[in-house]
Design a protein around this nucleic acid. Structure first.
Lengths: 337, 337
DNA sequence: CTTGGCACTCGGGAACACAGAGTGCCAAGC
DNA sequence: GCTTGGCACTCTGTGTTCCCGAGTGCCAAG
């Protein structure tokens, strides 16, 4: 009984604070939510909640504000993800369906998410680690230059130019292409290095220089994994929100691939929406912000993550609903293509 | 004589205001620049300059601030582009040299420019309009799916998946690939539609369905020209600068491809640095900002543009120097690859 | 355990005064 | 005719003071 009401109070505080952006006091609470008790009672509860670290007051004699710990409790136990409206679902679907290639899918997704949540959206490109080789192509460009193209099952294309010591011999190239495709087709990207390690040895000696040149470029392109690239959109939404911490830090973090990666990155259960609140996140520059993220991917494998970043004071149920929905739709799109 | 000194005064005002960010008064001017005349004289000159619209005072009795017209005069007649230091040049060169493909070139360029100028950098992807076909590739993906890849002389790669009504026939695909390459190789992208218009008619009837399916995708990819894509970096640099206009507008504009395109886009002489100051630019949301841009491209053709966007109150000589230098280096890199 | 009453605290806004920077103008000097 | 020093005037920005109101904590009564 007692505890129940305290939780109700906490929930009310979070909801009011999120919607008004002002510290909420005991009187306002009893007026806006019918809790059936008087302000004085609320005050007692609030005193306890404060002692337990769920709420805080900015100054003596001002309303209360949820702490990170308070938001955490709210997210974990006091709220449920709010599904999108039918109209929103249709909009998502039709917007994403128009995508023409993987770049386009990512670009559209990030914009969509930003617009939907009115916050900064972050989308990680589908990781290669989990994908497999669909095709390898070798294209002669000029006498001593070859373009090497790797296509994965997610539709991602990596291309590199290979500089050769000798003139290109069409037949050798064709042969090597066949060999490469035969040994790599369907193979996971992570196991490619193993597969090709002894390949030059199995070829006739005159093919080896060509093969080693190509393989070194191939391996390099895998190592770089630049495709763990992250894009963001909706920075304009930061302008309205007043961050406790300067928004310079936030913008800086957004342009640091590495930081973003770590924010979204540490994966969890497939398809579950994870929330990281304020000081819970690993980067000190983002103390005042929360990250709501989810994994997406085609089939049963999680390929990458996406999410949004906003002030700690955000509408978690709605945001989580949007993130979850978009993650699902993107997964569908990817699986279909 | 008279006019000369007025110009010197204007230059001094611009320089001081840019460096201090405070309206500059007559007394401060005589102290910091040895103009050889007294504050009272300066005041007379300033009154004239104000009447002519080159400077303005924010409030009665405060220093003067350059107007857009004043900056314009400064840029056109009173300043010269400041070359970069040798160290900066080396840094640019080595940073760009590490680029591995066209995406990488663009990404590195935009970051470099942002860091160099401490402003928002904007880079347009090399336009297809000016580029030529280097190679067309057709890759069977599955029974009824084909990947179509177009490689241009700038190293840009467009890929699309083609859905087919019939099963893929390897021989037909090979034949069509040969035909396509024969007729398109080296052909400008803008003339591709003409070249392929009658192509199905010249093929044996059994090849036509395949050919038309592929061609429709090819044409579509050309029409979309999404590659007139624009990326930006350095948004964090906006946080420090205090814009007269809200920075929300600026961030919004940055995410609108179309707006950015128009800002950089209207081309001018190759390799000249163009400056658009405050209200001169076509987009009302960006009244308080200036754009310094230049074209870049390999060889003698201008492929695209790059530049930076910052507050009207910027150090034009330095910024112009940086933009010019980066444009040149990128052109070199592109020409070499 | 809840509730009304009450004294206390403190932030934020309004009113006000003041110093300082800067201007415009005028009359004198070169 | 341009330049210069002097002088009165006009503002903005800042610091001070004061007061109101929202909100709290505590206490004693129900």
């Amino acid at each position: 009984m007692v505890d129940d009401r305290k939780l109700a109070v906490l929930r009310a505080i979070v909801e009011d604070y999120v919607s008004t952006n002002e510290p909420v006091g005991s009187k306002a609470l009893t007026e806006r939510h019918n809790l059936g008790v008087s302000p004085a009672t609320i005050r007692n509860d609030m005193a306890v909640l404060e002692e337990q670290g769920y709420i805080a007051q900015p100054h003596t004699s001002a309303g209360r504000v949820p702490t990170d710990k308070g938001y955490r409790l709210f997210v974990d136990r006091l709220s449920q993800v709010k599904p999108l409206s039918a109209a929103e679902r249709r909009a998502i679907e039709s917007f994403l369906a128009g995508a023409v290639d993987i770049d386009d899918v990512v670009t559209r997704t990030v914009r969509l998410l930003a617009q939907l949540t009115r916050q900064v959206a972050v989308v990680q490109y589908p990781t290669m680690s989990n994908s497999t080789v669909r095709h390898v192509e070798l294209v002669p460009l000029s006498e001593r230059r070859l373009m090497f193209v790797l296509i994965t099952n997610t539709g991602r294309v990596e291309q590199r130019v290979v500089e050769l010591a000798d003139l290109v011999d069409e037949n050798r190239v064709a042969h090597l292409r066949a060999v490469l495709n035969a040994s790599l087709d369907g193979c996971g990207l992570t196991s490619v290095p193993d597969k090709v390690a002894d390949l030059p040895g199995r070829l006739p000696p005159e093919d080896r220089p060509l093969a080693t040149a190509i393989l070194s470029v191939l391996l390099e392109s895998l190592v770089e994994r630049r495709d763990e690239k992250i894009v963001f959109a909706g920075a304009a939404n930061l302008a309205g929100a007043d961050f406790t911490v300067g928004l310079r830090e936030v913008l800086e973090a957004l342009e640091e691939q590495v930081v973003l990666m770590r924010l979204l990155g540490e994966t969890s259960d497939r398809s579950a929406v994870t929330v990281r609140i304020g000081s819970e996140n690993p980067y000190t520059g983002l103390k005042g912000t929360s990250i709501v993220a989810a994994g997406y991917g085609s089939g049963d494998k999680q390929l990458a993550r996406l999410g949004v970043l906003g002030p700690t004071r955000m509408d978690y149920p709605v945001t989580m609903g949007a993130v979850r929905a978009v993650a699902r739709y993107v997964s569908q799109i990817l699986a279909a293509s």
